[in-house]
Structure formats: C-alpha cells, structure tokens
Design a protein around this nucleic acid. Structure first.
Lengths: 159, 159
DNA sequence: GCGATGCTACTCGGATAAAAACTGTCCGAGTGGCATCGG
DNA sequence: CCGATGCCACTCGGACAGTTTTTATCCGAGTAGCATCGC
C-alpha cells in the first residue's frame, strides 16, 4: 500500500504556486527543475490536478499552471483524490459469500460485511483529517524563508 | 494506493479462527476452500501473521493455524501492519531540498517538512481508528449465524 | 504612425514503452500420528 | 496386553514465474506573443 510519489509532488507544486501568487503561470519544466523531478512525468500529475479543477492551465509562450481557486478552498483531500483516485484503499470483495461454506442464505448477507465497515471507519477518519487541512494552512505553517527563496529563484525566470 | 487483498483474507481468517475456538488448528487448504481463494497464496499471508505473533502454526498431520492470543488482544492495526508492512502510505522524499532553487540553507530545513507533517497526521488518525478495534469486536458485530455456519461446516472436516 | 496578418516558438495534452510491485504457483524440510513389532 | 519404534502422510515454509499497476518518456495539437507587412 504505497501512495504514488505524485501526491508529494502535487502538494509541493500547489504550495509553490500559492507562494508565487495567483497572477503568474509557471510551466511544467520550471516546476520540475525546482524539485529535480522528471518534467514529463510531473506533467502527468499536473494534468490530473487540472481535471480536478485544482489547477488551471494556459497554453502559449507565457503559459503554464496556476491555482484554479484560492488556497483556502483547496483541501489536502482534494489533491490526494485527484491523483490517487476516489476509491478507498481497502476494497471488500465479499469473500464471505464465496467458498464452500456458503449455502445460499441471503438473509445473513443483508447487512454489510463487518470487516468492510471497520476498515471503512478508519478510511473515513483518514479522509476527515485530510479534508480538515488546506493549502492555505501549509502556507501558514511553512517558514517564510521558503516562500521568499522560491520567489527570488523564480523571478529571473519570468519574462 | 491499493491495499493488498491479503488484508481482507487475513482478517476473515482471524474471524473464522476466533469463531472456531482456540483448541482447533485449521490448515491452509481448509481456510482457502472456505473463502475460495488460492491456497498457496493465502498461505503466504498466514505466514506473515505467524511472524507477527498473531497466529500460531503447528506442523504435522493434525496441524494448522490457530490464534496466538485472545481475540481481544488482536487489533485490526496489528493485522494490517503484519501484512502491509509498518511503513506509512505517504513517504516524504524531501524534494524540497533537491532542485535548482536550493542554495544550501540548513537552518530552513531543521524543522520537518510541513507536508509530511500534515500527511502524517492523517495517517495517525487512520492507525488510531484501526488500533481501537479488535478481532473480538468483529466477533460481536457479526451475526451469530455466521459463526454457527462456520462451525457446522468445519466440524465434519476435523478428525 | 497604426492596424491587420502571418509566423514561430513555446505550451499543454494524451498516447506509448520500461520497471516495479503485486499476484499466483510450486516443491522441499520437518513433524506428529499411527500401525507394527517385540516383550 | 502394553510399550517402544519405525514409517508415512500431511503440514508449514520459503523460493520461483505471470500479470497488473506504477513509473518514465515521447511526440503531436493548439495557442499566445511578436515581427513583419500593408495602408
């Protein structure tokens, strides 16, 4: 059960875009060099964030990505869901119904599988915690030096 | 981020063993036929549960698996950790330090990455919820008919 | 001088290969029960 | 009849392929800015 690296990349990109402000579009190559990750692969995840309406993309010579909404409106759950997909990590395949021990007794299986309920409870707690934090919270928690450095580094690259 | 099927299988096996009682050892083949899963593959996960001291195995002609401790002492987190491994799903690779924008400023990175903290908080909530439930709770939540059916099905196979 | 127009360089976007992890399968080492044999 | 002993079938345990998901890469469609040309 390993989460994709794209989640970490996507969150860092969102934080960087929040630092740089709403009016600057940053292309994939610039973000990739900022974190030293494969540009074309990073692009894949940025596309997923655009599809989820977290980022907005613009084409052309001064194009790139920017946040599609205010940082307070982007939860960590939004980013994770956009990249990892909406399904829960645990998926009940109803093995209790298969197998030799079952003799067609539908009433017993009217109520959902207790194991699935228990795992779903943990998954809900996980999502609740993720939904409680936004990109704006990341901005507040991070040291101001990071934002300053990112701006100073980006400035000469913007034209 | 998909969890292994082995978690579901392992939990159902623990529940079945709790139903059958402490004094009967159930071999892999029997458990596999109860859920219609590949026997040799299921064995792999049962071995992991033995290594984690959740199940106890006995060899020989009447051997098999049984619970290594009382159901109240086995949390869902124990089972998940035994099969999925102890690592968190999100792993911070510190990409903030790599990349062209960094100019060797160790003081800024003395404090841990805020994104890792946020994700770790969600992971902790998930584990807390899993640790709060035991196999004994599964037994109580499940309908009694299930236990009865399992016992009736297993009885003629025991010698 | 001013506006329209064509071009060019740059961007995103999705389709295409390599790698890793998960899934599934197999056979060997070891052990406990059971029948046999001896007393 | 009772106990010791050897055998054998059955078990777990770890090592070996197949398949799906993840990772990484590439090239094409489209667009915005800019220089050029005409008025």
């Amino acid at each position: 059960m390993k989460m994709s690296e794209g989640v970490e990349w996507g969150l860092h990109c969102c934080l960087a875009l929040a630092w740089l402000g709403d009016d600057t579009a940053v292309p994939t190559a610039t973000l990739a060099s900022a974190f030293d990750v494969p540009p074309h692969y990073l692009n894949k995840f940025l596309q997923a964030l655009v599809r989820a309406d977290i980022l907005a993309s613009s084409a052309g010579v001064k194009g790139g990505f920017r946040l599609a909404k205010r940082p307070e409106k982007i939860t960590l759950l939004d980013v994770v869901t956009a990249i990892e997909g909406p399904e829960a990590s645990f998926r009940c395949t109803e093995i209790r119904r298969r197998g030799a021990g079952v003799t067609a007794r539908p009433s017993e299986f009217a109520m959902p599988c207790g194991i699935a309920i228990a795992m779903g409870r943990a998954d809900a707690a996980w999502r609740r915690e993720l939904a409680a934090q936004t990109v704006a919270d990341l901005v507040k928690a991070a040291p101001p030096a990071g934002a300053e450095r990112m701006r100073c580094w980006y400035a000469p690259r913007a034209r």
